[in-house]
Simulated scan of single mutants.
Amino acid sequence: MTRFEGPDALGHIQSLPSWLVGRVAARGRNLVADAIAEEGLRLPQHAVLAAVAEYGPVAQADLVRRLGFDAKDVVLLLNHLEDAGLAVRRPDPRDRRKNAVTVTSTGLRTLERCAELAERANAELLAPLSEAEGKQLMELLGRVYEA
């Protein structure tokens, strides 16, 4: 019997850094998703709102490129944000055939609350670690990400 048969097969997979990082990422994503749900947002809506706040006024097509989302999905996400009063679409002054999206003051306040909620969720994620260990983990993850 090889080490990939029998009782060690699953243990091997679960000992891989890629598996552990994926599981931790899924837990973190769920914690943040649950937290920002208090503001009535899902993760993709939050990402679009943050991009609009950072780059706006921004053309819808630019949002699609920057976020890597499907164009139809961005339209639906913007519909939700606009219905909630968090963003507005107006004709782009540079090209009236396009819409430019801008975050509203309500949208900015929502982003601030979401940032606080996400910080709390991430603190919960890192709660098993000391402050120094949390900083070290962030440094190590950053190095792996940048490689």
Rank of each mutant, 00 (worst) to 15 (best):
residue 61 A to H: 10
residue 59 A to V: 12
residue 42 R to G: 07
residue 45 Q to S: 09
residue 130 S to K: 01
residue 80 H to Y: 15
residue 56 G to Y: 11
residue 56 G to C: 01
residue 93 P to Y: 06
residue 25 A to F: 15
residue 128 P to E: 03
residue 59 A to Q: 11
residue 45 Q to W: 12
residue 78 L to M: 02
residue 68 G to L: 04
residue 81 L to P: 00
residue 2 T to S: 10
residue 53 A to I: 04
residue 7 P to I: 08
residue 111 L to E: 04
residue 26 A to Y: 13
residue 98 K to I: 09
residue 7 P to F: 14
residue 130 S to C: 02
residue 134 G to H: 07
residue 37 A to W: 09
residue 49 L to C: 00
residue 145 Y to I: 10
residue 28 G to H: 07
residue 54 E to P: 01
residue 73 D to E: 12
residue 27 R to D: 13
residue 111 L to Q: 07
residue 121 A to K: 04
residue 142 G to F: 02
residue 76 L to D: 00
residue 22 G to Q: 12
residue 129 L to S: 02
residue 35 A to R: 08
residue 131 E to V: 10
residue 1 M to L: 15
residue 86 L to S: 02
residue 131 E to Y: 14
residue 138 M to H: 10
residue 69 F to E: 00
residue 109 R to A: 15
residue 95 D to Y: 11
residue 41 L to F: 06
residue 127 A to C: 04
residue 132 A to T: 07
residue 131 E to S: 08
residue 77 L to E: 03
residue 139 E to D: 12
residue 6 G to K: 07
residue 85 G to S: 00
residue 63 L to F: 13
residue 44 P to R: 09
residue 82 E to S: 06
residue 51 A to E: 07
residue 36 I to R: 13
residue 5 E to N: 13
residue 35 A to P: 04
residue 114 C to F: 02
residue 105 S to E: 11
residue 122 N to E: 06
residue 17 P to N: 00
residue 112 E to D: 13
residue 11 G to C: 08
residue 37 A to H: 14
residue 139 E to W: 13
residue 101 V to T: 06
residue 91 P to L: 14
residue 76 L to Y: 06
residue 26 A to W: 15
residue 75 V to G: 03
residue 57 P to Y: 06
residue 92 D to I: 15
residue 59 A to Y: 13
residue 110 T to N: 11
residue 87 A to I: 08
residue 51 A to N: 04
residue 11 G to P: 05
residue 99 N to M: 08
residue 122 N to C: 14
residue 1 M to D: 03
residue 86 L to G: 05
residue 135 K to W: 11
residue 90 R to P: 03
residue 46 H to R: 13
residue 57 P to H: 12
residue 120 R to Y: 01
residue 134 G to V: 05
residue 108 L to E: 14
residue 74 V to Y: 11
residue 55 Y to N: 02
residue 58 V to P: 01
residue 82 E to V: 12
residue 96 R to G: 03
residue 60 Q to S: 10
residue 75 V to Q: 05
residue 136 Q to N: 03
residue 38 E to R: 12
residue 27 R to C: 15
residue 133 E to S: 02
residue 7 P to N: 01
residue 19 W to V: 03
residue 128 P to T: 08
residue 5 E to D: 14
residue 34 D to V: 06
residue 106 T to F: 07
residue 38 E to C: 10
residue 39 E to D: 11
residue 111 L to F: 05
residue 21 V to H: 07
residue 112 E to V: 12
residue 48 V to F: 09
residue 112 E to R: 15
residue 145 Y to H: 12
residue 30 N to M: 08
residue 138 M to I: 04
residue 79 N to V: 02
residue 107 G to E: 01
residue 55 Y to C: 00
residue 14 Q to P: 02
residue 44 P to Y: 11
residue 102 T to D: 06
residue 141 L to W: 09
residue 34 D to L: 07
residue 46 H to E: 06
residue 83 D to K: 06
residue 47 A to K: 13
residue 28 G to T: 05
residue 115 A to P: 02
residue 136 Q to R: 11
residue 127 A to R: 05
residue 96 R to S: 09
residue 59 A to K: 15
residue 130 S to Y: 03
residue 29 R to W: 12
residue 119 E to P: 05
residue 134 G to L: 04
residue 45 Q to I: 10
residue 51 A to F: 04
residue 104 T to S: 09
residue 5 E to W: 14
residue 127 A to Q: 02
